[in-house]
């Protein structure tokens, strides 16, 4: 069973994120890391390939400046190879353009199963899994919290507003998996060393047969008209609990007439 896991390499969310003043794109300078949301898909892909008794996990990523730091983390976890699409013409690409690029790259790997996160940590559009599935002409199950493979079928527990539903889907299919679906492994020292030698196939937009006008800022066909600071909430009262913190809460609840 061959699995493709789509992974995003993002600026460290623990740092300060900012938008470029003129392009309004998220600033992606410096080292990028593997989006933690994607580590669950990587782990699940590795487990499913193992359970199926063979097959490989191929990573597919789109990132600026031939960035591979995040990919190396996932390769160190055990993925076999990566396809990286990196092209200056991709700056400002929106979700649909990204899905076009990822779908074209995924096709090269001819996978049985495609895994993604439900959304990225930095952009959180959350439409790319369904967009990829539609572009590839495949079924999809989003928000998968449990995945079981039996032969050519997958049974998925998919989150709903009230709980979850059990969904059966034939392969090949696209699944978006939630954080917490599996426990991502830490790369071993051996894994980290091995990752340095694993193949990363770097492609440009033209290699994928995609028209340059479908991607980048012009392909996005949307524009930011303004970015302004949000109205800040009025600063509240901060007290330190010296054994009477609960009294402060009771007084506040009385004041707003909740009790």
């Amino acid at each position: 069973m061959n699995v493709v896991v789509c992974v995003k390499q993002i600026p460290d969310p623990a740092g300060t994120m900012k938008l470029d003043q003129s392009s309004h794109n998220l600033v992606r300078e410096g080292k990028l890391i593997l989006d933690e949301s994607d580590s669950y898909g990587v782990e699940m892909g590795l487990q499913l390939a193992e359970q199926a008794g063979g097959g490989e996990v191929t990573l597919v990523s789109m990132a600026p400046n031939s960035e591979t730091s995040g990919l190396r983390t996932a390769l160190a976890m055990g993925a076999a190879r990566a396809i990286l699409v990196s092209d200056p013409g991709l700056a400002g690409t929106d979700a649909l353009g990204t899905a076009k690029v990822l779908a074209a790259a995924i096709k090269r790997a001819e996978p049985d199963l495609i895994l993604t996160a439900t959304e990225s940590t930095d952009g959180y559009t959350g439409t790319i899994p369904a967009q990829i599935a539609e572009l590839l002409g495949m079924p999809s199950v989003t928000f998968s919290k449990k995945v079981t493979i039996s032969g050519d079928n997958v049974t998925v527990e998919r989150q709903t507003e009230e709980g979850y539903e059990e969904v059966e889907v034939p392969l090949p299919a696209v699944l978006s998996v939630t954080a917490g679906v599996v426990e991502p492994r830490y790369p071993s020292f051996k894994g980290i060393m091995a990752a340095k030698g694993k193949p990363v196939d770097e492609l440009k937009v033209t290699d994928l047969g995609i028209d340059g006008s479908a991607v980048g800022a012009s392909g996005a066909r949307q524009e930011v008209t303004a970015v302004t600071p949000a109205e800040a909430r009025k600063a509240g009262e901060i007290v330190t609990d010296d054994g009477d913190g609960f009294q402060q809460i009771i007084s506040y609840l009385e004041r707003i007439k909740v009790i």
Binding site: T125, T127, A130
Partner: peptide, 21 residues
């Protein structure tokens, strides 16, 4: 959950971008 699925597939089908959140 359903809204995002529909929007994503529709966006790809009619080749229009989406604004989310």
């Amino acid at each position: 959950y359903n809204g995002r699925d529909i929007a994503g597939r529709l966006s790809a089908r009619i080749d229009r971008p989406v604004l989310t959140n």
